[in-house]
Amino acid sequence: MAESIPTVRRERARTHVQVRLFGDRIFNTATFVLALSILALLFGLAVALIATSFPAIRAFGLHFFVTTEWDPVNDQYGALPFIYGTFVSSLIALVVAVPLSLGVALCLSEMAPDWLSHRLGFLVDLLAAIPSVVYGLWAIFVMGPWIRDYVEPPLAHSFGWLPFFQGPKVSVGMLSAGIILAIMIIPYISSVCTDVFRVVPHTQREAALALGATKWEMVITAVIPYGMTGVIGAIILGLGRALGETIAVAMVIGNSAEISASLFKPAATLASVIANEFAEATSDMYVAALIELGLVLLILGIALNVVARLLVLGVQQRRYRETGK
């Protein structure tokens, strides 16, 4: 006996839904596997770095991070000068880049008319398109001598009583590296900050202006607090880029495994020493020590991201407590 028409339709609909659910399941599984593959890649990278740097980890242990001796001839390795160089060069870059980037972002989002804002934004983004080796070349031949002749003498003359501005004035050193890093991270920070400021609701701005605020007061009271989470994220993004930047820094920092308070003196970063010395690493211990430096760089990057997440979370929670949304 033939089934009734509603029953057939119901069966067809059920089959259709099952096929769709099956498709959804495949899609969910595929995206989950792809997401896991990123974690697996990171895990694999960390395992490979630990495995290949194990001879150095076993030989030097925690002393690797607190000793300053880097002597490949006698197979003695300490990473402290490079960790110090990485932090200080990144700090100089942030000190220079953050105010400039915020200024650029505010100019593009609050000051410039639309037609000019997009053109200027394109030019600022173009800074990120220049290869780092070109920045390095330019820093060696143009910026470094200029800093040596026109920046370091006034700094030494005015602030020479500080240990940061003492010592011989040379074109390669920590200051040159920090400034070239700053130029390189400005487009990243300013681009993100511009986008963050542009999405601040117009009602916020209008409310501030309606209460009698000037344009700057509107920026300070309405725009920046609203976008603070994004600004912090942008700064952390720039810091991450500064920590890992290699070639441009290797070309201008001077590559000296010494810790000096003077910003004029040559130094080295984790990335620059790996780039400079990996090709000439002859002994197994030398290679292992360099790979351990890479491991330190990876751990620094991950730690930085965790700190950034915590900072953003803290800002979000504070805003939630203050505004309830």
Binding site: S101, L102, G103, V104, C107, L108, L120, V124, L127, K215
Partner: peptide, 22 residues
């Protein structure tokens, strides 16, 4: 307010100088 806005314009100009120099 005007001064700070001028500072932001100055920051933009200062940022673009290295681009043209490179």
């Amino acid at each position: 307010s005007d001064s700070m806005m001028a500072v932001t314009v100055g920051a933009t100009v200062l940022t673009l100088i290295p681009l043209f120099l490179v």
